[in-house]
Design a binder for these strands. Structure first.
Length: 328
DNA sequence: ATTAACCTGAGC
DNA sequence: GCTCAGGTTAAT
């Protein structure tokens, strides 16, 4: 569910609370949340959160040795206590990261992103029902709680090592280290990454016959784009989703990537896209980009550019909505 | 390069 | 009942 714009909104909210904090404990509450078992959750305790970083839809905290040297006795990282580790979150289709007493301020939003007030108690209990992991952290003000809530359990939390980026540039937004969590190796630079090699992506797209929408969704090619923003980028660039990659010019691919970057920046401005209570930020608030969508979820409605009724089809197992007239 | 599977819940 | 949903991955 959460794509780059939603994960970035969550990252900005988390950074406010987590930067500089000390991890007191990390606990998995469902067998699927730590299914990879990269490093024991216990090794997170006693470390300090130095960064809150993101590449595409992957979000992580850089954990460093506590300056006070008060590392826990059971802490035994592979490269010694000085090696930074990554506390990696992937939200899957329905993951939420909620800080402390932020219990949410709404139950649902309407089809166009308008806010629908509901009982706060109902929203809170619904979330606790799907609580999958808890992180206790502390700062000068005392102890706090970060809850990982995930209805469908496609998301996960992994404590893992950091490995160097192939190009020697920083691993993503919010990190100075030229490193990536090992679990996220293979994830390409995202559509808003200043170090994304656009010409290289264009070459890769143009060397494959796979339809362009499927390539846009390929996180190993360019990351952060999911079903919402793929439809939006194609609509805004005026490109038909079924165009084979090898039918496109380099200029068209670059126009498409620029359209993706623009729509993602616009979505971040308003906190991302919420259709219901499944996507909320770290404070429990929805985003308001649903009302600015051109294509996603607008099947049968008029194209915002030419008025033609939007079509829908299934491509690569995902539904695609597009304008048959002005996307060519 | 497609398809099925992993899950829970909402809506028809 | 059935279909669909913001994602990824393992298996055809």
């Amino acid at each position: 569910m959460p794509e780059l714009a939603e994960v970035e909104t969550i990252r900005l909210g988390l950074a406010q609370h987590l930067l500089g904090a000390r991890v007191e404990g990390l606990e998995g509450l469902h067998p699927r949340v730590n299914r990879h078992r990269d490093l024991p959750y216990e090794w997170a305790a006693g470390r300090r959160i130095a960064e809150v970083a993101r590449r595409g839809k992957f979000l992580w905290c850089t954990l460093v040795a506590d300056a006070a040297g008060a590392a826990g006795a059971h802490q035994a990282p592979p490269g010694g206590p000085a090696e930074p580790l990554a506390l990696l979150f992937h939200l899957g289709m329905s993951g939420q990261l909620l800080v402390d007493s932020e219990i949410g301020q709404f139950d649902s939003v309407g089809a166009h992103g308008e806010r629908v007030e509901g009982g706060v108690g109902a929203a809170a209990s619904d979330r606790d029902k799907h609580l999958r992991a808890r992180l206790v952290f502390s700062d000068a003000a005392g102890e706090h709680l970060l809850r990982f809530v995930d209805q469908r359990t496609f998301g996960y939390v992994s404590l893992c090592r950091l490995a160097p980026t192939p190009d020697g540039q920083p691993g993503g937004q919010g990190t100075e280290l030229a490193a990536l969590p090992t679990r996220a190796a293979g994830i390409a630079r995202d559509a808003l990454d200043p170090y994304l090699d656009v010409a290289q992506v264009a070459d890769a797209v143009r060397s494959s016959r796979t339809i362009i929408k499927s390539q846009l969704l390929d996180q190993g090619k360019v990351s952060g784009i999911g079903n919402i923003y793929a439809d939006e980028a194609l609509a805004r660039a005026g490109i038909h989703p079924t165009r084979p990659g090898n039918s496109m010019s380099a200029a068209e691919v670059e126009r498409l990537l620029e359209a993706a970057a623009q729509v993602l920046r616009a979505a971040i401005e308003v906190g991302g896209t919420s259709f219901d209570a499944l996507y909320v930020d770290a404070a429990g608030n929805p985003g308001y980009f649903a009302r600015e969508l051109w294509a996603y979820g607008r099947y049968g409605q008029p194209c915002r550019r030419c008025g033609t009724s939007l079509e829908r089809s299934v491509l690569g197992g995902r539904s695609a909505t597009f304008c048959p007239a002005c996307q060519v």
